[in-house]
Amino acid sequence: MAAAAAAGAGPEMVRGQVFDVGPRYTNLSYIGEGAYGMVCSAYDNVNKVRVAIKKISPFEHQTYCQRTLREIKILLRFRHENIIGINDIIRAPTIEQMKDVYIVQDLMETDLYKLLKTQHLSNDHICYFLYQILRGLKYIHSANVLHRDLKPSNLLLNTTCDLKICDFGLARVADPDHDHTGFLTEYVATRWYRAPEIMLNSKGYTKSIDIWSVGCILAEMLSNRPIFPGKHYLDQLNHILGILGSPSQEDLNCIINLKARNYLLSLPHKNKVPWNRLFPNADSKALDLLDKMLTFNPHKRIEVEQALAHPYLEQYYDPSDEPIAEAPFKFDMELDDLPKEKLKELIFEETARFQPGYRS
């Protein structure tokens, strides 16, 4: 834990890192770190609560700039109880001085990944967590956004079992017609939660990839272990087919990539493993919904509104309290091709509203 900075004593240090967030945020305490930044909790002297502050230093890398800009653009436009918001952003007053960006968010005690390492969940908890994931996802999908990296560590939890989806750095506007060349190379989302079509096709992607990830998360809540822990690309596919069985001819016809289709045709026939054999203690309604989410063919996979209306979630289902976005989200430009200098300018502009004396 960093010592509390005395008023006016300059930035606090946390594990050798400068955290320049005073005077409003003090009493910093280390939480963890990701690929390009550290997260601390801090005391907000204005709202009198502890908050989470993520320090991001992305400006050396085009990919990190892209992810940072995506996350900020999306989260500043989203407003939903099951999606983490941005409360404040701290950065230098000029673009030349801006080396880091500090993002202030609600402090959540833990995440689903940490929880599943230590606790076996009751059916009631599984049901409530799944409902909140789908409630947040309904809003995301209504904005025409794909999260693309749903996994237990991106689901934040607090002691009252509130759940918030975080990390929109890989999110995209849904565009089933656009052929994202190089899709697989830039697709760094965790393999275990990846839909089979991501490994088999490169053309376009749809909201059904997020539903697949939610199915993987439900299976993990039922058993405290990942359902498809593939060691590499082909191993991942083999794990999936080992449980779902061989795809039907109709399902194979959806695979545009001939090499991928021929690979699947070359494999020995596998039978589907019954879900109640894998999860003998699970609620039968939970397994019915799991089956509809972990469907090989993305066109037959359940959609988020149908999933919310499934009998497993009937005690929570309330369409009048499951809000959607006001308007579909649009990125003005494809960020993939922009140089990091341009992305830095866009991050600077996007964060201006939090600067003292800002006038829109």
Rank of each mutant, 00 (worst) to 15 (best):
G32Y: 03
M333L: 15
H178R: 12
I209L: 09
T159H: 12
Q236M: 10
N158G: 10
G32H: 05
G22D: 05
L155V: 03
K330A: 02
W212N: 04
A309W: 03
G8W: 01
N253P: 06
A352S: 14
P311Y: 04
D167Y: 14
H141V: 11
A2T: 14
M333K: 15
P356N: 00
D288C: 10
V14I: 10
R15A: 13
T63P: 15
A7K: 01
G16H: 12
L252S: 09
L115W: 00
M293C: 04
G16F: 04
Y316P: 01
F78T: 02
Q315M: 00
H178I: 11
R24D: 10
L265C: 10
Y36H: 15
Q315E: 07
N144E: 02
G22I: 07
G37P: 15
R191P: 07
P298V: 09
S208Y: 15
S202E: 09
G357I: 10
V21N: 09
P339F: 02
V304N: 09
K151H: 03
L137N: 00
T206M: 04
I83F: 14
L146P: 00
A325F: 01
A42F: 12
D44N: 13
D210W: 04
Q315W: 01
T181F: 05
L234G: 06
E220V: 13
V39P: 10
E345K: 13
D111P: 02
A189F: 04
G136D: 00
S213C: 14
T68D: 15
G242V: 08
P298L: 09
L278T: 08
K300P: 02
G10F: 11
D235L: 09
L155P: 06
P11G: 08
K48D: 13
L290N: 00
F348C: 11
L265D: 10
L265S: 05
A327F: 00
L76F: 01
T351P: 12
E71M: 08
L241K: 09
C65T: 10
E60R: 14
I133P: 01
A309G: 08
H141R: 10
G204W: 14
L116Q: 14
N45L: 13
T68K: 11
L28E: 00
Q236R: 00
V46M: 13
G230P: 03
S202D: 11
Y131S: 05
Y36T: 15
D318F: 10
L112G: 05
I103P: 09
Q97N: 06
R148K: 12
I56A: 14
M13G: 11
K54H: 00
L69M: 14
R261S: 10
C65H: 13
N201D: 03
H120K: 09
K342L: 05
E303M: 10
S142W: 03
F354V: 10
D291F: 06
P356E: 11
S246I: 13
I243Q: 05
K54G: 05
W192Q: 09
L290H: 01
D177I: 07
T110K: 02
N144S: 00
S213Q: 06
K117R: 06
E186P: 08
L107K: 01
R24T: 05
P323T: 12
H232T: 06
R191H: 09
E341T: 13
P328A: 11
K300Q: 09
Y30I: 02
V173N: 02
K292W: 02
E33K: 13
L222H: 06
D337R: 03
L265E: 04
A6F: 00
Y102L: 11
H178C: 09
I140N: 13
I256P: 06
D332I: 09
A35F: 05
P268L: 09
Q355D: 10
R79N: 12
I31G: 02
L264I: 03
N257C: 07
W212V: 05
L252Q: 14
I53D: 01
C216S: 14
R135Q: 03
P58R: 15
D106R: 04
T295K: 06
V51C: 14
K272F: 14
E349P: 03
N82V: 01
N154S: 11
N158D: 00
V51H: 14
K259W: 03
W275H: 04
G245V: 13
L346H: 05
I217A: 05
M38F: 12
Y139F: 14
L267A: 03
K344N: 14
V14Y: 09
D283S: 04
A5D: 12
Y193F: 15
L150S: 12
I74V: 08
K207V: 05
N297T: 15
K344F: 07
H61W: 12
M38R: 15
I255K: 05
Q17V: 10
Y312H: 00
